[in-house]
Design a protein around this nucleic acid. Structure first.
Length: 428
DNA sequence: TCTGGGGTCCTAGGACCC
DNA sequence: TCTGGGGTCCTAGGACCC
């Protein structure tokens, strides 16, 4: 068994001052909704949902409100879920709304039935990003070793932070929580534990605005009674499979032999599950990471047909390529694997990609290669989603030696050549 | 009336090379 | 010519997460 950085940096019981590894997981409470409540305090206590709605009436809400004193806007001026029609899901719901059974990822029309009086606000990523940057800056001012896990979550290594060991991390967690609240008005929940796996579970224990401390000795008492699904990485599919094998709780998972888990879930997953069930996880807190891929996708307001809606589809496709190219250029990357993603009206999806010789961040080049990918998909079925992705990324300053202007002419595949069904080759 | 828009990582087969 | 193994790259799909 090899011993990596973690062991050599934190020798167990070796020196009198040896620090115990303490990792925190911090999770902002109902993040998007809470940010909206800062702008519209008159909505506090009311059921509010933030939705991925892209209807014209939603898009105009911000402009309508733009020049008013937001806190004075009367309640009647806010759109309600009642009578909502169209696509879109809830991204965040206030705790008041959650009491009606609505929550993340639920379709807005279903939510409208459960809680018609709920106020519906469109998402405003720019605003959430602002608060995201703000709370992360507050965290790193106090504890510099932070791993970004998206807009509203971070891991923090408390181990070597002054005060990070006091009360198992509770003192520092409280300090960070208070600093974030004082400076942003937002609340968060924090779990502190010997590793990321346990810290993540702990942060859920006392939500919202709570702190939970977990020590190694708490495994049996606090972790084992939980459902396997609470382990970050065990999703709906694995959970179902575990249930079918008679395993519901983490304790039951921990009873299984390593070999038995490997037989049922494969070498990697089986071994990982075994470790997780025993509370073991030595992943470090990662401060910086490079993106693997950059993509844009969109679900249409209505399903589109490759033939009947050819012009509309073509325009959307071009726009997606331009957006991806813009993202790449802004972030300073170029890629050489270009791909597309389609979702059909039955929600089944396919992907196609192609790796080319030259790195690119150019919209027209991407559009050309993505168009070739699209030709390899039979398109008799109606589409609900189209996406464009660029992977195999490099920092664009390191691509100066490759020139971007030579889109290769991909050879048509045998499959595309022999395809007798309607394909986009006639369209794009 | 189902199910958004980003991402990451893993698996598995085939091509190709040594 | 056959047998065998390992490594890497590419592609497609799928599970999972925020």
């Amino acid at each position: 068994m090899t011993c990596g950085n973690t062991c050599s940096r934190y020798p167990h019981g070796m020196s009198a001052k040896s620090a115990i590894r303490r990792i925190a997981h911090l999770d902002m409470d109902a993040f998007y909704a809470s940010v909206e409540l800062l702008r519209y305090p008159q909505l506090s206590g009311l059921p509010v949902v933030i939705g991925g709605a892209r209807r014209p009436q939603d898009e105009t809400l911000r402009q309508t409100h733009a020049h008013q004193a937001l806190a004075r806007i009367p309640l009647e001026a806010f759109p309600r879920l009642q009578g909502y029609s169209g696509r879109g899901v809830i991204t965040t719901a206030t705790y008041a709304a959650r009491q009606f059974g609505v929550g993340s990822a639920m379709g807005l029309m279903k939510a409208a039935k459960l809680c018609p009086q709920a106020i519906l606000l469109p998402v405003d990523f720019a605003e959430y990003r602002k608060y995201s940057r703000a709370f992360k800056a507050i965290v790193t001012d106090i504890a510099p070793l932070m791993e970004d896990r998206g807009v509203d979550e971070v891991y923090i290594d408390f181990t070597e932070v002054p005060g990070g060991q006091r009360e198992g991390g509770r003192v520092l967690a409280r300090l960070i929580q208070k600093a974030i609240f004082d400076q942003t008005g937002l609340t968060c929940s924090v779990g502190v534990a010997p590793n990321k796996l346990l810290a993540k579970m702990a942060s859920e224990f006392n939500k919202p605005n709570g702190i939970a401390i977990v020590f190694e000795d708490d495994l049996i008492g606090k972790i084992w009674p939980l459902a396997c699904r609470k382990i970050n990485g065990i999703g709906p599919k694995s959970d179902e499979k575990l249930k079918s094998l008679g395993i519901v709780t983490i304790a039951q998972l921990a009873e299984q032999e390593l070999q038995w888990l490997i037989e049922h879930f494969g070498q990697k997953t089986g071994a990982w599950m075994f470790a997780a069930a025993h509370g073991r996880d030595d992943r470090p807190v990662v401060l910086e990471s490079e993106p693997v891929s950059i993509s844009r996708e969109t679900t249409f307001e209505r399903d589109l047909h490759a033939v009947r809606d050819k012009a509309e589809l073509g325009a959307i496709f071009t726009r997606l390529c331009e957006q991806v190219a813009g993202d790449l250029q802004r972030q300073g990357y170029a890629g050489k694997t270009i791909g597309i993603k389609l979702r059909f009206d039955d929600f089944k999806g396919v992907t196609r990609d192609q790796t080319v010789e030259h790195y690119t961040a150019d919209a027209k080049t991407i559009r050309g290669i993505a168009g070739q990918c699209l030709k390899r998909v039979p398109l008799s079925q109606r589409l609900r989603l189209l996406g464009v992705r660029v992977a195999s990324l490099v920092k664009s300053d390191s691509t100066d030696k490759f020139k971007e202007n030579s889109p290769p002419a991909p050879v048509a595949t045998a499959q595309a050549a022999t395809d007798s069904i309607v394909t986009t080759s006639q369209l794009f």
